[in-house]
Amino acid sequence: MDWFYIQGILMLAGINLIAVLGLSLLTGFTGLFSFGHAGFMAIGAYIGALMTVSPTTTPAGLGLPFFVGVIAGGLGAGIVSYFIGRITLNLKGDYFCIATLGFGEAIRLILNNVQIFGGSRGWPGVPYKSTLPAIILVDVVAVLFLANLVRSRHGRNMVAVREEELAAQITGINVFKYKMIALVISAVYAGVAGVFFAHYMTFLQPKMFSLTKSTELTIIVIFGGLGSISGSVLGALILTALPEVLRAFEIWRLVFYGAAVILIMISRPKGLMGGMELSPGGIRKARAERKARLEAQREMKQAQEGEIRNA
């Protein structure tokens, strides 16, 4: 295996990670399942590419620097998500999930028919701009932002929405607002991921952003553990690399991929990290919780024994 190949896998994992981190906020922390995040990635990818493609290859291209594309792609996805959220966030649980599924497919079908972007034939000529250092930098910033957000009152409010919506409301939390914030931030992340994806592939085609892609992102979040940023990071790295590691199985590759995911989910039903964080604070917290649980169990046992003696 040469470095070029490994670098490619790392870049794909890093790009996936950006989208997964956003989805982690929405699904893992706020409790909303989405099967349409490939749609936000597509919006980011196409807007980003529109900014950077040179006018000589595509007449609509603006030929701007890459970072403009990144910003525009993220913003574009965020703005679209705001309007989608206005319509769909009042839907409860499963219905919201179905609505996002419809959105993702709608975006793909629309792009299939927009001829200036090549329609379903695809859009070649996107400049190769995604570099591994740039992706790692964005990943680090994305993790830091997210970690700081979830460990603040805003993040706690989102978790409250996930845990018990009614109780969140009567605790003075504007449930709709916090769902919206989570959705928009997750869409911005997905959009940025889309821009990097476009400038890594150098070719865009609507079918890259199908339901399969959305499902892949959601699987990674659940696999890593809902409500855990470190879980999302591990999940993105492992599940992006796994199909490559399994290349030895040739056509049976995806069967083994599925089997591996099922096996891990059976042995760790709460995902790899199960809501815990691999950070000094996270480990301290997990220890304190464990200690408190054991203490409570011991006390309960003592109380029961006392009752038996008294009886």
């Binding site: 009152r153 805003h154 706690r156 409010n157 978790v159 845990e163 018990e164 605790t171 914030i181 304190a288």
Partner: peptide, 23 residues
């Protein structure tokens, strides 16, 4: 209750009105 949160986190979450910092 917020079932999967600790006792402290349950109360801390509800204290959010006593803080005003932005995202």
């Amino acid at each position: 209750l917020f079932k999967n949160l600790t006792v402290f986190e349950n109360v801390l979450t509800a204290c959010h009105r006593s803080a005003s910092y932005s995202i």
